[in-house]
């Protein structure tokens, strides 16, 4: 069953405004936060990479917004909005980027490689597609334990769709009949590589049928559509229908990371309709439909920016990890640590 939303459809007029505004607020804060992270990076205050979700905020926020306690969320590199919607505290983002020992990763891992498995948010590894089967395992175990009503949602890109792990993970999810939603954002560049060197099929959503999934497409620059299509996919998964594949179309409006000027992005592709800025589109809609006026938006920006500043300031005041005080033991069963590991 393929329920393909119309490509480039105009923003739905009957969006439930409350959810829409909530989503916008998270998108807006994500943009402010990511601009802050980029400026900290340029100022040399962040070690390692900074990876932004600019242009993908609408699809990402929709991924986090319809999940409940007990659900499993495995976000990826460009999912700040989704992580916030799922409930990840801003301060934990700042802590991870700034390397605070108080953060969830305590300086042991950084930037987007963060999570809180206890809260249902898995910490991604860099190897694309690897998290798909891990979500399947979480869902399988929940079913074995007799839990009900849960789902899992994980995200991937058009590049990540091409790994063997994604294929194995998508297939095993269907074989195990677990309630999984995969949201694949086709942002047209996997690092510097455009789609013609990633895949040769007409549309990635066509793969849904091949895996025994239900597939749908969505304009990733249209928040109302993202909310509608992704909430429907979540609902279908929760209702026990086959795994869901949602393919969103966007353009990555930043480099792969902040070290990358993305000079390889062509002028032609920037004129495509999927190249629109989801945040700007949402803001326009809000103003046009007088959901919030300009002054209200200004005030909102100030509030959101203050929260961001507070999160960053908190993380900046916290201590960095110290090598000589670190517990260099990678196993939880301490008596099974190999001796030299602990001795040195």
């Amino acid at each position: 069953m393929l329920q393909t939303a119309e490509r480039g459809a105009s923003t739905s007029k009957n969006a439930p405004h409350e959810k829409y505004l909530k989503a916008f607020r998270i998108m807006f804060q994500t943009r402010i936060f990511e601009e802050k992270l980029a400026s900290l990076y340029r100022g040399g205050l962040i070690t390692g990479g900074v990876y932004l979700g600019k242009g993908q905020e609408a699809v990402s926020v929709a991924c986090g917004l319809f999940l409940q306690k007990g659900d499993v969320f495995a976000p990826l590199i460009r999912d700040q909005a989704g992580r916030s919607a799922f409930g990840e505290p801003l301060v934990d983002v700042a802590r991870t980027y700034l390397g605070s020992r108080s953060g969830p990763m305590r300086g042991r891992d950084g930037n987007i490689h963060r999570g809180c498995p206890k809260a249902g948010q898995l910490a991604m590894i860099s190897h694309l597609g690897a998290m798909v089967s891990v979500v399947v395992g979480k869902l399988l175990a929940k079913r074995m334990k007799g839990e009900k009503g849960f789902i899992g949602l994980t995200t991937i890109g058009e590049g990540g769709m091409q790994t063997g792990a994604t294929h194995e993970g998508m297939n095993i999810a269907a074989v195990e009949r677990v309630p999984l939603v995969i949201v694949a954002t086709n942002n047209h560049y996997a690092y510097s590589t455009p789609n013609d060197r990633q895949f040769a099929c007409a549309d990635l959503v066509d793969r849904a049928k091949g895996y025994g999934y239900e597939g749908s497409s969505v304009d990733g620059t249209d928040l109302a559509q993202c909310l509608e299509v992704i909430s429907a996919a979540v609902k279908h998964a929760r209702a026990g229908r086959p795994p869901q594949l949602v393919v969103a179309s966007t353009l990555r409006l930043a480099g792969h990371g902040e070290h990358d000027d993305a000079s390889y992005v062509t002028e032609d592709i920037k004129r495509e309709s999927f190249a629109q800025d989801a945040l700007q589109r949402t803001e326009q809609f809000i103003l046009e439909h007088e959901l919030v006026d300009r002054e209200g938006l200004q005030q909102m920006r100030a509030e959101l920016a203050a929260e961001v500043d507070e999160a960053v300031a908190t993380a900046q005041q916290e201590e960095a990890p110290v090598g000589s005080e670190e517990d260099w033991c990678a196993v939880s069963t301490r008596e099974l640590a190999d001796e030299p590991t602990l001795a040195e």
């Binding site: 891990v134 395992g137 979480k138 399988l140 175990a141 095993i172």
Partner: peptide
């Protein structure tokens, strides 16, 4: 229900076991 055949997918077999283990099982 506790001895389960899998597809020929070694990566996904272990990935699934990891997820289940993190959820409290002993695969």
């Amino acid at each position: 229900g506790r001895v389960l055949n899998t597809p020929i997918s070694e990566d996904a077999m272990v990935g699934t076991a990891i997820g289940a283990a993190m959820e409290g099982m002993r695969p």
